[in-house]
Design a protein around this nucleic acid. Structure first.
Lengths: 190, 190
DNA sequence: TAGGTTACAATGCGAATGCATTGTAACTCT
DNA sequence: AGAGTTACAATGCATTCGCATTGTAACCTA
């Protein structure tokens, strides 16, 4: 066995560079060269770690959802006992709102991919599975909270959160306003 | 004065071709050549009617919002007297949901531009003005309907509608479900 | 220490892009 | 009828793209 590096770590570094290009210049500016430049490495290195552009982009999407999922799990674990189901819903949804720089970056990456889903089958399929998972979790919590029509409420909350995220990123209002709207809606579900 | 054509009409035709490219292949596939090919004309002609790509794209956005606005006005005018303000809200918001092929195309164009706003100042500014207009209209109607916290409710409805649109376009659920969610939420405002 | 594998760097290539330039009909007005 | 303007079409150019190829150093194993 010859010279070895930590593949996962290198790929993560490149993906962070990709995210930066994506959030500053948009998905159409994401190219092998741009990512390499942003990461301060050669284009050959990027090629070494990703078979092609599509794999790189899908890995960037996967890394992002993984990261958000981790933060959701952490936030849930930090909740004081006893945990109300609607509190879980609130905490989970708040992780997807652009409330700080980290979440703002993630939200923008997610929003960009979501907007691209209608014209990209692979992205659509991936996001569909993620949506199904999120919907199932919300459904479970809303049932436990005795909310009327929990399936519809779950769809509503997911759509509302995404809409608030998009509007915040577009500069239509402040993050705090988005948070207030979400809290209002959750209060009304009681 | 020499040879004359209807500039507005030609531009509209080209913009429809642009929309088709946009909805099928995404905004990054929109190029002078692609639009020309889709419209069945030469690239020189496209250049003749638009100074550059940016102007063409902004005109496409403007045409779309204009068209949606026209449909909203028509739908409002077709409402039977006496008109309830919440009914107006419903009719207006329904014009932005992808409930039929026409609205689906418009919704996808709108969603694509909205997702691009965070990295494009010109688009952001344009959409901000459009959002402000929509919010002001909803605010007026919600006040007339004696809804609690009308400003917040307006922001909620706009975000929810956009979220439902995005999720429908991404294939997360059916158009009918999106409509049902919106109707539920409007009923709860009474 | 020799051989083989890994980790890049560098370069080349065909395709596509936005835009500028040039050419040429067609039409209007004087 | 001539002149001038408009409406395109065609082409060229520099740049960027994804990807393939090639080269080379570093490193591990036998």
């Amino acid at each position: 066995m010859p010279r070895r590096t930590d593949h996962q770590q290198r790929r993560r570094g490149l993906v962070e560079a990709l995210w930066r290009v994506l959030t500053v210049q948009g998905l159409e500016a994401v190219s092998l060269r741009q990512v390499a430049a942003e990461a301060g490495v050669s284009m050959g290195m990027v090629q070494h770690y990703f078979a092609d552009k599509a794999e790189m982009v899908m890995f960037a999407l996967d890394s992002m959802t993984e990261q958000v999922g981790r933060r959701m799990a952490d936030a849930l674990a930090a909740l004081p006992e006893p945990v109300e189901p609607l509190h879980r819903v609130r905490v989970v949804l708040e992780q997807t709102l652009p409330l700080d720089p980290r979440r703002r970056l993630e939200a923008q990456v997610a929003a960009t991919f979501l907007a691209r889903a209608p014209v990209d089958a692979r992205i659509a399929e991936y996001l569909r599975a993620a949506y199904a998972e999120g919907h199932a979790y919300l459904l479970e919590q809303l049932r436990e909270a005795d909310v009327d029509e929990p399936a519809r409420a779950a769809a509503l909350l997911l759509a509302l959160t995404d809409g608030l995220t998009t509007h915040t990123l577009a500069g239509h209002h402040e993050p705090a306003q988005a948070l207030a709207v979400l809290h209002d809606e959750l209060d009304r579900l009681r």
